[in-house]
Amino acid sequence: MSKILIDIKNLHAEIEDEGKKILKGLNLTVKAGEVHAIMGPNGAGKSTLASVVSGKDGYEVTEGSVEMDGKDLLELDPDERAKEGLFLAFQYPVEIPGVSNINFLRTAINEIKEYRGEEAVSAKDFMSMVREKSKLVELDSKLASRAVNEGFSGGEKKRNEIFQMAMLEPKVAILDETDSGLDIDALRIVAAGVNKLRNENNAVIVITHYQRLLDYIVPDFVHVLADGKIVKTGDKSLALELEEKGYDWLTTENA
């Protein structure tokens, strides 16, 4: 049996200052080699889940636990979680003016390597990695040397996220609505990239509210997140059902 990479138990989280409860007892277990899709209505708490798992400020976990590959994530700083192999493809990637993508990634990779007691990557190896991985998502190599996300189109930003994922080779990747704002070609490219990065040792959590992405990245499980909890879990066919019926039948059924 393959090992558990993400284990979320009874997770309760609220907005720090307001005390507004967003996650209300969420459970999720993801094993190596699996792809899980999380779907759900707007405002259900999908991005909040990604933020809490990756350690963003502003949220308080009031109950429950999150483990990655046996490690208690909630104890770690956000950068330590990343160094342990967690990657989040942001719903809204930010721009960092004046910092080239390449410099950014090289710094990141070397920080991660240092944390793991590995040797820094040489400039030469790094550049050949950039060439190889940027092809994966058909990212113009010029974009690799431009400032992080600055002046990128929406689609380029999303592709850049997957490019970074390819460079960092995470254990667990959470893709937060990576499909939103992508036309069908870009969607195919991004999905193909993700599929090439999948293997038996890593896991991908795809957050989306369209089933269309799941035609390309085929999930092993589909979960419905509503009102801060996973209210239903099924296989790929659940996504199609949701597409047809919407979410209301689930939330009301549950209420």
Partner: peptide, 19 residues
């Protein structure tokens, strides 16, 4: 964003400011 890619807060600030 920087932290999520593995940079410590200090490194992140350094990078952003230098940019």
């Amino acid at each position: 964003y920087c932290q999520q890619r593995g940079l410590s807060e200090e490194k992140a600030i350094g990078l952003i400011v230098n940019g």
